[in-house]
Design a protein around this nucleic acid. Structure first.
Lengths: 264, 264
DNA sequence: CCGTGGATCTCGTGA
DNA sequence: TCACGAGGTCCACGG
């Protein structure tokens, strides 16, 4: 462990103060579990009375305070905030200040059950698949995912009403515009697609309109039908396969790069 | 501490397995610091190779995995997800499954530096001031915050295009609709407000349109001007004062209720 | 259950 | 730096 980590159970507030001071300057990942009270002021303001919580302070100056329940942190500070420590009466005060919004977060600890600080190493690259971009990409590479025989004319074509994802001809040669959504289509998405369709038709074009997505809500489906917009179910796992096949092939072409490792 | 918490430094994976099994069944707040690899599949899918991270598992089944940097968790699971443990080869596998979206999150630990689990108690109520609701409330209580002499006719009135925050008459007796935003108005907000205005005017009414907010972007300002929508700057601190005054007064009137405490 | 809008949203991208 | 749009957004509230 060689100085990389410090753990302390039930430290006194003074011990905690001294440890935290070093942790913050050494920019370690800090975990504090204890009884605290919180005040926030900035874009809004909040108060939270005494309770047992888990505080995370990261090496980049981000802060998260978690209550025993719920996905979201109850109070936080994004990266880059500045910390100051104070010992006051019976409390250990951790103050965090964020310049951009002039936001302050004050946490007063009355009792600390655990203080841990560690220098963490994590250079891995986070790979997210099937973002909206990649869904488009997989369709571009394989328009049959939309409809057998579909030929793409344009992508991300700008209109007055916005940007339409695809235009092209279907297997019967009909001019078609396609709006792609990665997730369940709601009425909002249908209305947007209808705007595009209207814009084309107002220019006198005979256009077929398609919304392509993995799913659609019942109400959106009803609206789409009444607007003569077709819904096409797109299978995400098929997109995934098409995309991976593409990545693999393009990686083969750039195999030299795939062997690179960071120097660290 | 009486069984309330368990801390273990550098546990073997087998020790960790046994401890985690009990922690999960006892629904303790769990903190794991260690070297892990992550895979997620559900609405999207992601992969994260080996690295040192901090895992939080809460008593309500929410999960957060944090890297050494950044505000956001790299992977997560909202409350209610279900966990299973497995020991496989050299790894301790923590699986989390979320029914709603059929999402799975698999975390494989190769080494654990710290395992802590605690039964946390936190019954405090989180008080947030100056949410959008409270901004409305303060304006309702004191319409002069918008414009001296303004009289409110309706609040949150439903239209086809959405819900308009206020309608009423200004000091000159002109029928006016008001859209309130708690933060900087952007073009999107202006367009929305314009929809409301259009709906009223399409019914033949002569209507004045106002957007009230603490600030407006330059472009939104330009758009508002061209659409004949007025921007009214609302001072948040004045809202705050008005709101607090109201809360104080209403608390005086409901003093008996303020003494209630939950039975727990 | 779906649908809508807000958030101390955060975070990227582009002008 | 500002403005705008996306997010595995999450979350609360309405119908």
């Amino acid at each position: 462990m060689k100085e990389r980590s410090v753990y302390k159970l039930q430290p006194t507030l003074e011990e905690a103060y001294n440890l935290l001071e070093e942790d913050l300057s050494k920019k370690r990942f800090i975990i504090v579990v204890g009884l605290c009270r919180v005040e926030y002021a900035g874009r809004a303001s909040s108060k939270l009375d005494w309770g047992e919580r888990v505080l995370l302070i990261k090496q980049d100056g981000s802060l998260l305070l978690h209550r025993p329940k719920g996905f979201e942190a109850v109070n936080w500070q994004p990266p880059g905030s500045i910390f100051t420590l104070k010992q006051e009466d019976e409390y250990l005060l951790i103050k965090s200040y964020r310049k951009e919004y002039r936001e302050t977060l004050n946490i007063a600890f009355k009792e600390i059950m655990l203080l841990a600080s560690i220098k963490l190493e994590d250079e891995a690259e986070f790979e997210m698949h099937l973002s909206e971009d990649e869904m488009y990409e997989s369709i571009t590479l394989n328009p049959d995912l939309l409809e057998p025989g579909f030929r793409i004319l344009s992508q991300q074509r700008r209109l007055d009403a916005g940007v339409v994802d695809f235009t092209g001809y279907d297997s019967l040669g009909r001019y078609t515009i396609i709006e792609v959504k990665r997730k369940t289509v709601d009425v909002k998405a249908v209305k947007q697609a209808y705007k595009y369709l209207t814009e084309f038709r107002s220019k006198g074009a005979s256009v077929r309109g398609i919304i392509a997505a993995p799913a659609i809500t019942t109400e959106a489906s009803r609206l789409a039908a009444s607007l003569e917009l077709e819904f096409k179910k797109v299978d995400l796992s098929r997109c995934r396969i098409a995309y991976k096949r593409h990545m693999k092939n393009s990686l083969l072409g750039a195999a030299d790069e795939s062997n690179h490792k960071p120097n660290l």
